[in-house]
Structure formats: structure tokens, C-alpha cells
């Protein structure tokens, strides 16, 4: 396959960036999108040019490191991570636009790499549970009902890739934040911090400069882990419940 790529190139956080056109040839349809970029980078290095910077780690769709907006879709046309997107979903001779996540809370570091540490600060504000340290607890000490375990697991699947923020017209982090809030709120282990968690995490989310939710649902259409819209509704319910109870440490 021969492709034309239009990639956002930006040398540093404070520099001007621009969409730059590259031709890449000899691409196999079985390559992943990142392998296609690796091929481009090898060409660029051979030519003495600066390779395109992009985040990646596990390349098996579970770490959340990779992520770029491909032809206007976060993670590209398939509902998966960029590393698990294969070139067979594109046609020979196609022009592909590749851009970084665009959000005020995710400043561009270089090219396609953005700083997502705002997510870490949201998690730090309440994405934890209190446990008694010491010897391992008895396994059946805290029973968890099957539906609660299922809900918790579904929301724990979030890998924090940031596609929800990238796809949202408001750059909102509601789906990310709600995934963690709902995950922990559905478990008995999460009960002690149930009120402070949602208030503190939403407070941090707002402080980081993410936008608000306007229920467009764009986030759920790109989430590689299928976190549902009901996650946001549940967090809204948790937020209102916690506000009534007057919790929160901020």
C-alpha cells in the first residue's frame, strides 16, 4: 500500500505546529497503524529528518499509552486503540490525517505526544480505596454481589487513553472520571470514600480545564473499552447524592 500522510508536526510545547505531508510506500495491510508510523520514521531517520514522536507502550491495546486522532476519529475508524488498528481498514492511495488529542488540559509535548498527567491528578484526588494493611484479609470477609462486581469490572476496564476527551466537542473528561467513580462506588471497598471521592474527583476535573458534558455521546463512540453513557449518568447521581450529604474534602 502507498499512502499520503498529513501529520501534525510540532517541535516542542511552545512552538508553532503544522500539518506536514509525507508519502509512505510498501505498507502491508497487516501492519498496525503504529507499525506504519514506524516505517515512516525509519524513512525519515534514513533521510536525516526528525522522526514523528508518538506515545506507545504495550502495543496490545491494554495500556492506554497510544492515541491519536486519525481522519477526525480518536483512535481511527475502528473502535479500538491505535496500536490495534490495522492498515487493512484503509485503502491504497488514501490520504490520512493524523493529529494529536486536542484539549486545553492535554498540552502538546511534541508532534502527536500530549501530556495527559491531568488524568493522573484526577485519579490522585479520589481514585483509591482505604484498606487495612497487615496480613491478607480473609477472601470472603467482604462479599461482593455479582451485579456489583460486573458493574465495577466494566468500568475498571478504562485504560485512561484520553480518547473520550479528544472526541468530546467540549474536551470533557466526564467519561474518564465517571468510569473510576462508578467502578469504586459499586464496590463495598469503595464505600468509605464514596462521597468525598466523587466531589474531589469532579472538582479536580473542573480545575484541570476540561469542559463540561453536553450529552453528545461522542466519548462513548470512540472509547476502546466501551465505557457506556450510563457511567456519566451514574456519576451525576453520585455527585448530587454526595452534595446532599455535604461531603468533600476541598
Amino acid at each position: 500500500m502507498n499512502l499520503t500522510l498529513r501529520i501534525w508536526r510540532q517541535p516542542g510545547p511552545d512552538s508553532e505546529g503544522a500539518m506536514t505531508t509525507y508519502e509512505v510506500s510498501g505498507i502491508s495491510p497487516d501492519m498496525s497503524f503504529l507499525e506504519m508510523l514506524d516505517t515512516l520514521n525509519e524513512d525519515l531517520i534514513e533521510r536525516g529528518d526528525e522522526p514523528v514522536a508518538f506515545d506507545h507502550d504495550c502495543r496490545e491495546g491494554i495500556c492506554g499509552a497510544c492515541g491519536m486522532v486519525i481522519n477526525g476519529d480518536a483512535h481511527g475508524p475502528e473502535r479500538t486503540t491505535t496500536c490495534q488498528l490495522h492498515m487493512r481498514h484503509f485503502t491504497d492511495g488514501e490520504t490520512i490525517d493524523v493529529e494529536p488529542w486536542r484539549a486545553a488540559a492535554f498540552p502538546v509535548v511534541k508532534d502527536l505526544v500530549v501530556d495527559r498527567s491531568a488524568f493522573d491528578r484526577i485519579i490522585g484526588a479520589g481514585g483509591y480505596v482505604t484498606v487495612a494493611t497487615g496480613s491478607a484479609p480473609e477472601a470472603h470477609a467482604t462479599p461482593v454481589a455479582k451485579p456489583a462486581a460486573d458493574t465495577a469490572f466494566e468500568h475498571a476496564e478504562c485504560i485512561g487513553c484520553g480518547a473520550c476527551v479528544a472526541a468530546c466537542p467540549n474536551g470533557s473528561a466526564m467519561l474518564f472520571t465517571s468510569a473510576k467513580v462508578v467502578h469504586l462506588a459499586s464496590l463495598p471497598q469503595g464505600a468509605p470514600e464514596r462521597e468525598t471521592r466523587v466531589l474531589d474527583m469532579v472538582g479536580t476535573m473542573d480545575d484541570e480545564g476540561f469542559g463540561g458534558c453536553t450529552n453528545t455521546g461522542m466519548c462513548t463512540t470512540v472509547c476502546p473499552k466501551g465505557i457506556p453513557m450510563s457511567s456519566i449518568t451514574t456519576m451525576n447521581r453520585e455527585f448530587l447524592r454526595a452534595t446532599r450529604k455535604g461531603g468533600g474534602s476541598r
Binding site: W8, V69, A104, N170, G171, G211, T216
Partner: peptide, 26 residues
Amino acid sequence: QLSRRDLAARPVKYAHRKPRASYATH
């Protein structure tokens, strides 16, 4: 106030834009 926040949260627009949410939504 929310709209101001929302617009400020996406200071750089995407070069490749697609029609997205429904007419009622946008």
C-alpha cells in the same frame, strides 16, 4: 458560563473535521 468553559477546553481545533452529533445537539 458552561459554554465559555467548553469552548476554552478545545483551544486548537482539529484540521480534519467531521459532522458529528445530531442537529438538535449542536
